[in-house]
Amino acid sequence: MHPFEYVEATDPAAAIHAAGEGAQSVFFAGGTTLIDLMKLDVMTPAKLVDVNHLPFSSIEEQPDGILIGANVRNSDLAHHATIREQYPVLSEALLAGASAQLRNMASTGGNLLQRTRCTYFRDINSACNKRQPGSGCDAITGVNRMHAILGTSDYCIATHPSDMCVALVALDAVIHTQMHNGTKRQIPITEFYLLPGETPERETVLNRAELITHVHLPANPMARRSHYLKVRDRASYEFALASAAVALETKGQTITRASVALGGVGTVPWRSKEAEAALTGKPAERVTFEAAADAALAPAKPQHHNAFKIELAKRTLVLALEELMARSF
């Protein structure tokens, strides 16, 4: 691990100021991604600004939704009574991710910035445009069974690893940030992540030293009827091969509104407006779900080892919708 300066921030402005000094500064929250990647020399920050003591640890119920502090731990968010009742997809996604120990450590803000598990990104001896722009992509010609089939480019096919973010995309969460001069902004999560394109090293729209302070979940009656289904190589404690976050509103047997996001298959947490369009106005039955799955995966581009993910993601989405409809409300 490279040497670094450690700074414990006591207020947001000081944290942002500290992170703005020097190009190699990063915020440090749960550390579950950062410390891991620092040990591998994949990340070599010169300064860690510890934001764990900033006052962003509460979950506030507001008239227009729920405001989640960036420091709220994944476990606390997953077990929060209102989240479980009104946004079950988020609780389920969180509990499907990592292990209990990691969920106790990982923060909401940090999970949004979780880095890919691409083995070539994690190995400094491999070519990786995300880690070292211009060096190439060993994953495209290498072992790419776990890699993305949606949103890829000739520069990068790394999968976004988060479960939480897939649920947040389906819930139209809004990310609140604060910047150097005190400026704050609110970024819809659907506009937060950048497709790799020719610059896979740029993963989000965040500026340098821009601090995530909160995540807002808009009030959404449909979210009560939501579900997360994750398919993976092990029964637990494993990243997704495919996952689906779904929410439905029905009138009689007809779907009047739908929200669909996919995980484990995209370079970013993947919202499928195509699937939503295929569901809306149609009867809530298997034929409709299969049509939505076909629509969601129509843009998929498989690599040498991961063509199976197309069918797997379709079946995952269909099963997620069937399981959701089978629940009583």
């Binding site: 450690y6 550390g31 579950t32 410390i35 860690l48 209990a100 990691l102 106790n104 450590m105």
Partner: peptide, 24 residues
Amino acid sequence: GQCGACTVHINGQRVLACLSLAIA
């Protein structure tokens, strides 16, 4: 952070000591 052999309690919560910085 993949095996759990280093699990300790911090403020009563189980966490992984290998991904925790002592100074923090």
